[in-house]
Design a binder for these strands. Structure first.
Lengths: 213, 213
DNA sequence: TCAATAGTGTCTGTTAGACATTATGGA
DNA sequence: TCCATAATGTCTAACAGACACTATTGA
């Protein structure tokens, strides 16, 4: 008898201006792995929260279901399911003893199913980023507009136009200034902002045929 | 011992210009239910295909994972998982013996978990419709542009502008005319088109802050 | 003073939506 | 003939992207 489901978490954070995922350190002669836990006892969000807390010392700021992966054909009768969850913690969150942050661009060798889980999770982050405030959850509560733009560029995988980005942000009434400024090396200090959505004006989505095809 | 996972299918089609889902007829004194099947033996897509074939006589034209629902707290140790899948069949597909199409706006009473599954599935349809050709999979292979527009309006839940819709469609090179025309009651006959995507030009997605907030 | 970064104002090409008009069938 | 629907052309307001400029700090 097999058939217990597994909850697997892809914890995401920005480290050195790159997207990174939380991994358990490899034991002697094995590979690093995503944090996981047998399903049961508590709810799925509860499992995710405890796994992220174990690996980073703090609760996730956002989480979402990413998909389901079926354990290979090894168990022909009653193949076990793995539920893949994606979660975020703010930039600057350290990894705790026995864990580390690995940039997604240079992941260490993982079990094939876990690599697929990471891909699923990143795709989910990108899918949800304009429906939910994913970018804001990857930043500390106070952030500069340049940091926010860099986060969007990281998730979208392309550069954005500074003036247009700020115009759109202003029009959406999503942030408000704290009044504090932060000096970062050379240039003029940047103002700090908070995520403070005002109103959801007609959330009318245009038809985007360019994305199909 | 509990803990076998269940695959539940929300089969979607357009019936009478409304979105409808495939249900199993209620047995004496019970409620109608979504088609489902214990996980095991075959792959998840295989299970979905056989369930849709059983209910509509044909294979689904599209399917996607919609989410996972945990069976209520009834089983504190090892609560069972339900994997919700969403699938489409073309407009005009009948329901087979023991099944029927129920418009989503006026669903009969379902188990609470199944109502949640339907909501998840519809949300998934709407999420994916501009990344994948969901609208085309809900139509027969040859369709009129008015039918296509009505399908988009159904999925988006709002009216679209005819001229703009056709302009965008033309610009995306997604369809090509068959040369046939179909007369539908009174007015001028409409030309029939096929889904024939040409090229995927820079699939650059704009930043849409309006959707957040 | 120069270099580097933050933040803003203006212009222009593109495009979504509104409106009007023509085309072509059935009643 | 009238009416209903298909299909297309033109106008306009909104907006994304480009560019240039000012502002404010550290070296």
């Amino acid at each position: 008898m097999t058939s217990g489901a597994v909850i697997e978490v892809v914890g995401c954070a920005i480290v050195d201006r790159h997207l990174a995922v939380l991994l358990r350190d490899p034991a002697r002669g094995t590979r690093a792995s995503l944090p996981w836990k047998a399903h049961g006892g508590t709810s799925i969000p509860g499992s995710v929260a405890s796994l992220v807390r174990a690996g980073s010392g703090r609760a996730p700021t956002w989480m979402s279901h990413a998909g389901v992966v079926v354990e290979g054909a090894e168990h022909p009768s009653g193949a076990a399911l793995t539920v893949v969850m994606v979660a975020t913690v703010p930039m600057g969150t350290p990894a705790t003893e026995g864990h580390h942050w690995a940039p997604v661009a240079t992941l260490p060798p993982l079990a094939p199913r876990q690599s697929a889980a990471v891909d699923l999770a990143i795709a989910t982050l990108r899918d949800r980023m304009d429906l939910e405030p994913v970018a804001f959850r990857l930043l500390p509560s106070a952030f500069t507009l340049t940091e926010l733009q860099q986060t969007y560029e990281l998730l979208l995988g392309r550069r954005l136009h500074k003036a247009s980005f700020r115009r759109a942000l202003l029009a959406a009434s999503l942030v408000e200034p704290t009044g504090d400024w932060r000096s970062e090396g050379r240039g003029r200090p940047a103002q700090l902002f908070l995520y403070a959505p005002r109103r959801r004006r007609g959330a009318r989505r245009p038809v985007r045929f360019e994305l199909l095809g």
